[in-house]
Simulated scan of single mutants.
Amino acid sequence: MPELPEDLTLPPGFVPDEPSAASATPKDAATVVLARDGAHGIEVFLLRRVLGMAFAGGMSAFPGGGVDRRDADTAVAWTGPEPTWWAERFGCGPELARALVCAAVRETFEEAGVLLAGPDADSVVADTTPYAGARRALVAREASLAEFLAGAGLVLRADLLRPWANWVTPPEEQRRYDARFFLAAVPTGQHADGATSEAEDSAWQRPADALADWQAGRRALLPPTWMTLAELAECGSLARALTVERRIAKIVPRVVRRDGVLRVVLPGDPEYQEAAGHLDARPEDRLEHR
């Protein structure tokens, strides 16, 4: 795993100055790294989240969101690795694994217009235009993924997804997610559009270029996004990324305040255990932060 850089910091106020009585329970979520082969190697699809959003506003991120209770519907027509296979990879139960895969497919369609489904196990939708109304209905929660797929005569293509990582929002934050990261190649003929109210713009970029934009201050990245970009940059190609063997371990970062700024530390860092008492801020750091 690449090391997080020293200058990767969190915005002021990203976590409260004072700890809450109890850490919030993380909400299960799915994040999908959409990728394609570009002229100079692998490219990924990034959304810049609307600045005023309650969580990660202004940050560049991959499509994704929280699991909806209807994502666990067993009526979803499914082909590819079964929920038990996904459960083993993500260390959870089959019911949750099913919901995570369904959430990944649903969120990818809602936020990027990419549909990982097809008429049967050997084909995939090439043009999502006829399903624009269904996309709006999913966003409005007027229909479930199971209802949409059944009405359209489509099956979910779980085989188009690959498990990538599992990141949990630090316990210091008020809104927490237990996010499972998936990797998926954009199906031939489909185009990611980023037409979602949750993003102010979207773009395809090589992972190395996105990291360079972060270094230059043109992109704001949270640690899971930075790490995923760094890992994909090391892969070099889409084929390599799709076939690399990933051991998925749950990563729970902690937040510390050092030199007046908020930084994230990962398990194994000497400061990780020291961060257990919230931010361990010195009075002068707390004043500077405010």
Results as ranks from 00 to 15, higher is better:
residue 215 Q to Y: 11
residue 64 G to M: 14
residue 242 L to T: 01
residue 280 D to Y: 05
residue 59 M to G: 07
residue 238 L to I: 06
residue 142 E to T: 05
residue 128 T to Q: 02
residue 59 M to S: 15
residue 17 D to Y: 05
residue 133 G to F: 12
residue 76 V to P: 13
residue 247 R to E: 00
residue 273 Q to D: 06
residue 108 T to K: 12
residue 21 A to I: 03
residue 273 Q to H: 13
residue 236 G to I: 09
residue 275 A to M: 02
residue 21 A to H: 15
residue 186 V to L: 04
residue 14 F to W: 09
residue 167 W to P: 04
residue 89 R to Y: 01
residue 184 A to V: 01
residue 279 L to R: 08
residue 254 R to T: 00
residue 171 P to V: 03
residue 46 L to C: 02
residue 84 T to N: 08
residue 16 P to G: 13
residue 141 R to D: 14
residue 212 A to K: 10
residue 236 G to C: 03
residue 188 T to A: 13
residue 269 D to R: 00
residue 246 R to A: 00
residue 245 E to W: 01
residue 65 G to C: 12
residue 116 L to C: 06
residue 51 L to I: 12
residue 128 T to S: 01
residue 24 A to W: 11
residue 252 V to S: 12
residue 40 H to W: 05
residue 217 G to T: 12
residue 73 D to A: 14
residue 258 R to M: 08
residue 8 L to A: 06
residue 40 H to F: 09
residue 36 R to S: 14
residue 220 A to R: 13
residue 145 L to D: 08
residue 58 G to A: 05
residue 288 E to M: 11
residue 150 A to F: 04
residue 278 H to L: 02
residue 71 D to L: 05
residue 131 Y to K: 06
residue 290 R to N: 07
residue 187 P to C: 06
residue 179 A to E: 07
residue 81 P to W: 05
residue 160 L to N: 09
residue 47 L to K: 12
residue 228 T to P: 15
residue 182 F to L: 00
residue 201 D to T: 15
residue 23 S to F: 11
residue 214 W to M: 14
residue 58 G to M: 14
residue 106 R to W: 12
residue 270 P to R: 06
residue 274 E to V: 02
residue 224 P to L: 02
residue 108 T to H: 14
residue 256 V to C: 07
residue 283 P to M: 03
residue 55 F to R: 15
residue 100 L to C: 11
residue 18 E to Q: 12
residue 18 E to I: 08
residue 271 E to W: 09
residue 45 F to N: 07
residue 252 V to N: 06
residue 51 L to T: 13
residue 181 F to K: 00
residue 78 W to C: 13
residue 71 D to M: 10
residue 219 R to E: 04
residue 184 A to K: 02
residue 223 P to R: 02
residue 52 G to Y: 11
residue 138 L to Y: 11
